[in-house]
């Protein structure tokens, strides 16, 4: 692939990188840029000073020292390039987050060569430092703060290194097509679940009983008494025979079906309602309830489990 001159020197290439891609990116001369750092400029001043001393005192050894440092400066450019060249970057998974949290994007960095890569820095919002040994593949997670629910596209990731001497910074701006889902921010206030209409629930899933009491239906065994077990569950007969304290155990799940309805959600505007719904979904999942979900345009049958939970949150995020 060749670039036209105009494209080649367009400013955004140096900062924002080339077009976003979801394929792996191999760092080559086209993507790596090198400029001296502040320290590098200081080094130039040092060399100039040495040349001045050499000139004034007409001292060949000082000249030689200045020339060696100048050559070191020059050679470092090649080393800087080498610190990034050949690395292969691929976008990895990205985890969905709640708005306001930092979204994590995984980037897989592969070092296919037999050279060590020291002190690489990958930065999105914050910078991550890492080192790759020969032929190492590493997955790093970069975080970006999210503000709004919905799809969040990853910004330009900058991979840079100042190895070996810190005189030059080699960097490569990379744009990936990765995006992550940002769920609405869950409401902090605790508002109890909306009343579930029993009829509706039973209508929806006739096979499941709607029982609100927990752990009191079927007896299935005994276990040793532990502090906190309800007194009425104690197997008194056994105790009376001097065999110790046992609790009767009862099985059965409480299969409450919860319907979360957008129209019945308190809130002044869409965002507040979504935020509250989000909160309920989280609470319902944590409580192990069966919950269904309606927002305008979307209706999700009651369910539970990670997949269902994510489905609900996704619907909220993309509302």
């Amino acid at each position: 692939m060749s670039l036209s001159l105009k494209q080649r020197f367009h400013r955004s290439r140096f900062i924002k990188g080339e077009k976003a891609t979801d394929k792996s990116i191999t760092l080559s001369h086209r993507r790596i840029f090198i400029l001296p750092t502040q320290r590098g400029l200081g080094f130039v001043i040092l060399i100039t000073l040495l040349l001045l001393i050499a000139f004034v005192y007409n001292n060949n050894m000082v000249y030689l020292l200045a020339f060696i440092l100048a050559s070191v400066f020059f050679v470092t450019i090649l080393h800087s390039f080498k610190s990034l060249a050949g690395l292969v970057l691929t976008q990895g998974h990205s985890q969905a987050v709640f708005s306001g949290e930092a979204a994590g994007f995984d980037i897989v960095i592969n070092n296919p060569n037999n050279v060590q890569r020291f002190n690489l820095q990958a930065s999105l919002d914050r910078t991550v430092n890492f080192t790759l040994v020969e032929q190492e593949k590493k997955s790093i997670t970069l975080y970006a703060v999210t503000q709004q629910r919905g799809w969040h596209n990853i910004d330009t990731v900058t991979l840079s290194s100042t190895y070996p001497l810190g005189l030059f910074r080699a960097w490569s701006p990379l744009r990936f097509a990765a995006k992550t889902l940002v769920y609405p921010k869950p409401n902090i206030e605790e508002i109890p679940f909306p009343e579930t209409e029993v009829d509706q629930a039973q209508e929806q899933s006739p096979t499941l009983a709607n029982k609100k009491t927990k752990g009191s239906d079927d007896f299935y065994g005994l276990k040793e008494y532990q502090a906190g077990d309800p007194i009425k569950h104690i197997h008194w007969k056994a105790f009376a025979k001097g065999q110790g304290l046992f609790s009767k155990q009862y099985g059965g799940e409480s299969l409450v079906e919860l319907w979360l309805n957008y129209d019945q959600t308190p809130g002044n505007n869409d965002e507040q309602r979504l935020s509250q719904l989000c909160r309920w979904v989280i609470d319902a999942e944590n409580a192990g309830l069966l919950y269904g979900f309606t927002i305008p345009g979307v209706k999700l049958e009651p369910g539970y489990g990670k997949a269902h939970y994510e489905k609900c949150l996704q619907a909220l995020a993309l509302f």
């Binding site: 000249y63 060696i68 050559s71 070191v72 470092t76 001497l165």
Partner: peptide, 17 residues
């Protein structure tokens, strides 16, 4: 290694500067 790699150029500079 860096110094050794720098030597050839510095010698050239020394001779020709």
């Amino acid at each position: 290694l860096i110094i050794f790699q720098a030597l050839p150029i510095s010698i050239v500079l020394f001779v020709l500067f």
